[in-house]
């Protein structure tokens, strides 16, 4: 997928949220969009998923029916149990035929033993009694079960403990390994990216000020500390890179 010269500003706002934004999304890597709060990550995701219409060109964008869009902190009724959430998502999936049995925790051959145990643990537990990490893992797991071409995860690991974060990222990594799927996520936790094959896009002032691998990001940012590299890249006045 190629994003070419995309512009967007909200109605009744003078601020150009995306300003000639151009970059590529790579199907064989986890595409990670990073940037300051308010840099336009969620706006970009809304455009990629067709929720918002923007000026510019996006090549290779799948139809909305071929997209999964997991947002930050979607509100669910607190009395909803783990099994209800899994059932709701999988039974409502327009492309799937997966049936969920009420009494048996949902397991698949691709799950690790730890994941199977976690699923069994959360199956009867009300959503309100799950930790943030458990909620995010369950939601991410079930969204990854949907068969689509484009997966968009808006800050899937924000506010999540390290253990759950690793489980969520591993689940997303497995998704990236499946052929024909493009996965995009946003994050503020840059340290975790060193363990995954990522294609990083750094958004700043409506443009991509960096695109490339995590290693290239550290090199260009001039530091082994990704937070420092991030600061160096977004604070210094840099010309926007062309889509690569």
């Amino acid at each position: 997928m190629k994003i070419n010269q995309v512009n967007y500003s909200y109605a009744k706002s003078n601020r150009q949220v995306l300003n000639g934004l151009s970059f590529h999304l790579k199907p064989d890597r986890l595409n990670v969009v990073a940037g300051l709060n308010g840099a336009g990550k969620t706006t970009l995701f809304d455009i990629l998923t067709g929720v918002l219409k923007a000026e510019g060109e996006i090549e290779g964008l799948p139809k909305q029916n071929d997209v999964v869009y997991q947002q930050q902190g979607v509100y669910f009724t607190q009395t909803l149990k783990g099994r209800d959430l899994v059932r709701l998502v999988l039974h409502c999936d327009h492309s799937g035929k997966t049936r969920v049995r009420k009494k048996e925790p949902f397991v698949t051959p691709c799950m690790t033993n730890e994941e199977k145990e976690k699923m069994a643990e959360l199956w009867q537990r009300p959503f309100g009694q799950m930790s943030v990490g458990e909620r995010r893992w369950l939601l991410t797991f079930v969204m990854c079960r949907l068969d689509r071409k484009l997966y968009v995860f808006d800050e899937p690991t924000s506010g999540v403990d390290p253990h759950s974060r690793v489980q969520i990222m591993n689940r997303i990594r497995k998704l990236v390994e499946e052929p024909g799927k493009t996965v995009v996520a946003s994050t503020h936790t840059l340290h975790e990216l060193q363990f995954y094959a990522v294609h990083l896009v750094l958004l700043h002032q409506g443009k991509a000020v960096f695109t490339g691998t995590y290693e290239d990001f550290l090199t260009e940012g001039g530091s082994d500390n990704p937070d420092t590299a991030f600061q160096n890249l977004v604070i210094s006045e840099r010309p926007a890179v062309s889509g690569t």
Partner: peptide, 12 residues
């Protein structure tokens, strides 16, 4: 709460 948006993608 974002439910409407997310589930419109799931249900199509």
């Amino acid at each position: 709460g974002g439910f409407f948006k997310m589930f419109t993608f799931i249900a199509g």
